[in-house]
C-alpha cells in the first residue's frame, strides 16, 4: 500500500468500518458480520442486510507479537496483534496498543481505540482506524 493513488479510494470506502466499527446484520437470520457484507452468505438472496455499529468491546481470541514487520511497521516493532472476538460475536484482526505485552492473553478484555494504522510515506495519505487496548 505504498502508492498514494492506489490506497486512496480503497481506504476512503472503508472509513465507516475502520473508524466506527460499522458492520452488518442480516435481518433474516440475525447473523452479525464485520466488516460490512452486502450479501448474507447464509441467506444469499433471501437475506436482508442492514448496517450495525459494534460496541467496540471484546476479548482476545488469539495473539502474537510481531518481531519481523511488513514495510511501514518497522518503527512500531515489536508490536502485538490479536484476533479479537467482539462482544456481539464476529472476530477481527487488529493491533493491541497501549498495553503491557504480558497483559495480553487469550480471553483478555479489550476495547477499541482510534489510531493511525499506516501512512503512505511522508507525503501520502494517513490511514486511520481501529486498534484495541487492554481494558484497565
Amino acid at each position: 500500500m505504498s502508492s498514494v493513488t492506489m490506497g486512496l479510494p480503497m481506504t476512503w470506502r472503508r472509513i465507516p468500518e475502520r473508524y466506527g466499527l460499522i458492520g452488518s446484520e442480516c435481518e433474516s437470520c440475525k447473523t452479525k458480520y464485520f466488516p460490512v457484507r452486502k450479501i448474507c452468505p447464509k441467506c444469499r438472496r433471501r437475506g436482508k442486510m442492514r448496517d450495525l455499529k459494534f460496541c467496540g468491546r471484546g476479548k482476545v481470541y488469539s495473539y502474537t507479537v510481531i518481531h519481523s514487520p511488513p514495510s511501514g511497521f518497522e518503527l512500531e516493532t515489536p508490536y502485538t496483534m490479536a484476533i479479537v472476538e467482539l462482544e456481539e460475536g464476529p472476530r477481527l484482526t487488529a493491533q493491541i496498543v497501549d498495553s503491557d505485552i504480558t497483559d495480553v492473553k487469550i480471553g483478555t478484555l479489550v476495547q477499541m481505540v482510534f489510531r493511525k494504522i499506516q501512512e503512505d510515506g511522508k507525503e501520502g495519505l494517513i490511514h486511520y482506524g481501529f486498534k484495541f487496548s487492554v481494558v484497565k
Partner: peptide
C-alpha cells in the same frame, strides 16, 4: 489484504494465531 495485512498482520502472524490456539 484489507482486513488482515493492512492492519499489520503478516503471514507468520496468521499462523502464529493458529499456533497459539
Amino acid at each position: 489484504q484489507e482486513w488482515e495485512l493492512f492492519m499489520g498482520a503478516t503471514f507468520p502472524a496468521l499462523y502464529a494465531f493458529m499456533a497459539r490456539r
